[in-house]
């Protein structure tokens, strides 16, 4: 049984940078947003690696990466991601700053998936991040599935084990640090991945070259999506940090711990 695996993966502003929310004329955004580097959402990246792993194990399977993000940023980020695993890109040009409306995002993604030529819904697995580095609502993927009419949905997925008949067992995270084991008779299904268990694949120029054949044309064909920014906020502040760095080499762990406790108490 082969699968058609569609991975929904957005971009998020690089969490290493200072991300300061500001209200602009078009709605909420980030200070210096156009200059901030982006990365692929780490949760969705795990989903992509899992998808590639599954596709490799099931000959005839195929992976699409569907991404809603500003085209220029997408091109930049994909130059790293495209070296990891093989996929076909479906690009949707729109905002990706963490303030987009989840329902509108889901609609744009579902429309893009529905329009993929040759996609067989009976083989369809929609993968994505259970959560996101830019928000923790965890709702977008679920709504994508609903819009596509997929009723089998799993969130917080750590493993998918496929049997010979195409049925699969899913390990989902539930409260208390435990896993729930579910069995699904087969595609179509939605899996919102937690972290999975795979290494990040090494960069491969060969994989990159292969992806590039479809990547740039897909970027050029990226359809603009009208995705409104969600609401407004009254005020936001970057968490203040007090830093007091020094290098010590001759203190015991207990003394260091004691000093930190006293520092926190101040």
């Amino acid at each position: 049984m082969e699968f058609h695996i569609v991975v929904c993966a957005g971009l998020v502003p690089d969490p290493l940078q200072t991300l300061e929310p500001v209200m602009g004329p078009a709605g909420p955004g980030l200070k210096n947003e156009a200059l901030l580097p982006s990365v692929i959402d780490p949760w969705a990246a795990h989903a992509l690696f899992e998808a590639a792993h599954l596709a490799r194990a099931r000959p005839g399977s195929k992976v699409w990466l569907v991404s809603l993000a500003p085209k220029a940023k997408l091109q930049q980020v994909l130059m790293v991601v495209a070296q990891k695993v093989p996929f076909d890109l479906v690009a949707v040009d729109g905002p990706a700053n963490g303030f987009t409306d989840a329902s509108a995002c889901a609609a744009a993604l579902a429309d893009a998936i529905a329009a993929i030529p040759g996609l067989d819904r009976q083989k369809l697995l929609v993968f994505g991040g259970w959560e996101s580095a830019s928000r923790a609502a965890g709702t977008t993927l679920q709504m994508v599935g609903e819009r596509l009419g997929i009723t089998e949905q799993f969130q917080g997925v750590d493993a998918v084990t496929v049997g010979a008949d195409g049925a699969f067992e899913v390990l989902e995270r539930i409260e208390g640090g435990r896993h729930q084991v579910a069995t699904c008779s087969g595609a179509p299904a939605v899996c919102g991945w937690a972290t999975g268990s795979l290494h990040e694949p090494p960069n491969s120029p060969q994989v990159g070259m292969m992806n590039m054949r479809t990547l740039m044309p897909a970027l050029q064909k990226a359809r603009a999506a009208s995705v409104p920014l969600a609401g407004a906020f009254g005020a936001a502040a970057v968490p203040s940090a007090r830093r007091d760095t020094r290098v010590v080499k001759d203190m015991s762990p207990d003394a260091i711990a004691q000093e930190i406790v006293e520092w926190i108490r101040q």
Binding site: A72, Q75, Q76, M79, V80, N203, G208, M216, L219, Q220
Partner: peptide, 19 residues
């Protein structure tokens, strides 16, 4: 980054970071 965007969009070359 601006130059890279133009080069890549032309399809005439590929620029791979983290390599």
């Amino acid at each position: 980054q601006w130059v890279a965007g133009q080069v890549m969009a032309s399809g005439a070359a590929q620029i791979w970071p983290a390599s």
